[in-house]
Amino acid sequence: MRTGGEDHLIIFESVSKFYGEVLGVNRVSLTIEPGITSLVGPNGAGKTTLMNLMAGLLQPTKGNLRILGIAPSDAETFFRNIGYCSQFDSFPKGLSGYQLISSILSIYGYGHSEAGVKAWNVIERVGMKDAAHRRIAGYSKGMRQRIKLALAIAHDPKVLILDEPLNGLDPMARAETIDLFRNFSLSGMHVMISSHILHEVDLISDRIVMLSNGYVVAEGDIQSVRSEMEDHPIQIFIRCDRPSLVAALIFQQDSVVEAKIHPDGHGLLVATRNADRFYRLFNRIVLDNNISVEAVAPADENVHSVYEYLVGGGGGTAS
């Protein structure tokens, strides 16, 4: 089932999934490199469907997908490489966190004592040592989330699929979990995250896949996605001592479509269709006029802005 050259990629080839007549995702074609990839989109966009397809819990209605060159039908190899932290907040009744993880590890073929040691290690890693022998039914939302994460990483997968993994975690646990994801990414793993907290997605993602109504509307690293959106001029915020002079001079360039002076009089917001040309012109203006610049930063080169432009909606979160 392995295919040469694909053994580090996640590949979707024109994958569609329909639930009866209801569209889950349609004609999704993606090639995903290792690193942290975030799935972003509103409710019903198809994020969970895409994750469940990736995790082998759903079969595509059309198209093919391979994870590290392995098809989901090859269960014995496929699931050794996949760790999935699902959004389902339910657990087998009557079991403790330790019992659940060690029992599941036994199904991977680990012996009783080896499964126990691995379960204990991963429980320590997610900070659940004290509650390990308590029944999961008595856990808080954050503890259940951490046990799900522990279960997803317990067998050392190469691809980690995480559906809303930060839900219910307190700020400290969030920071620790994000660090954990970064470490996984640095070690060459795939970390696929679906999150509705866009500023966190912005912080941790190497690339995004944006979905709307079952279709992929954008994919890639955030800068390249943003630069391809020609209908929306890129906004650049500049803090300097003479914003009015800069505003007057930058209109030499055709691609600058708007310049607004900040109300405090020490900055301006420029909208341009060609950021590279603008930066070259701005450098010349600064040098020629001896302008003191405090900061220059893109104002809408982030997931939130891209999401608003492509999908619509104005909140700080999507779901």
Partner: peptide, 15 residues
């Protein structure tokens, strides 16, 4: 019904 079947289906065991 309990939404726990995925725990088994995600393991490397033939169905």
């Amino acid at each position: 019904l309990e939404k726990t079947l995925h725990f088994y289906l995600l393991t490397p065991a033939r169905r």
